[in-house]
């Protein structure tokens, strides 16, 4: 095959193939953006949710937890924690941290105000209502 299949053919297939599939990827992206309003729960994004996302990010929550399955695998999935536990539990939990139980995994105390806790809960509620194609398989995440 080395006689028939030349380097310039290989090069052309590379540039042609890459361009084609990248354009296809862009087309799918375009279509995804059109579909997203039906799935991503954007109507629920309030300033409170935005503030909650900012708290989520600046406390590096993803450094231990997953959110919709992405993040670290050291602590529970939080994409559906609002449905699993409810807002009051989440707030109480965060205020009670760390447990200090010897040998157990510890969550830091972030000293969030009540308002900030409400914002974080609002963000987690919004997240729990995104259409994730039925993931996770059950409420435990």
């Amino acid at each position: 095959m080395s006689g028939i299949f030349t380097k310039s053919m290989a090069r052309n297939i590379f540039y042609g193939g890459t361009t084609f599939f990248f354009l296809l990827f862009l087309a799918l992206t375009f279509d995804t953006e059109r579909e997203l309003p039906n799935r991503d729960n954007r109507a629920a994004i309030t300033p409170e949710v935005a503030a909650g996302k900012h708290i989520w990010e600046t406390r590096n929550c993803l450094g231990c937890h997953t959110l919709l399955g992405e993040g670290a695998y050291f602590a529970p999935e939080l994409g559906n924690v609002y449905k699993r536990r409810g807002g009051d539990f989440i707030k109480g939990w965060m205020q009670a941290m760390p447990t200090g139980a010897p040998g157990r995994r510890q969550m830091p105390q972030f000293n969030l105000t009540d308002e900030e806790l409400d914002q974080l809960v609002a963000f987690l509620k919004y997240t729990s209502e995104i259409n994730t194609a039925n993931w996770p398989p059950n409420i435990e995440g």
Binding site: R39, T132, A133, W135
Partner: peptide, 9 residues
């Protein structure tokens, strides 16, 4: 697959 994107993915 599971982050809220369309299911054809």
């Amino acid at each position: 697959f599971w982050i809220g994107t369309p299911e054809y993915w």
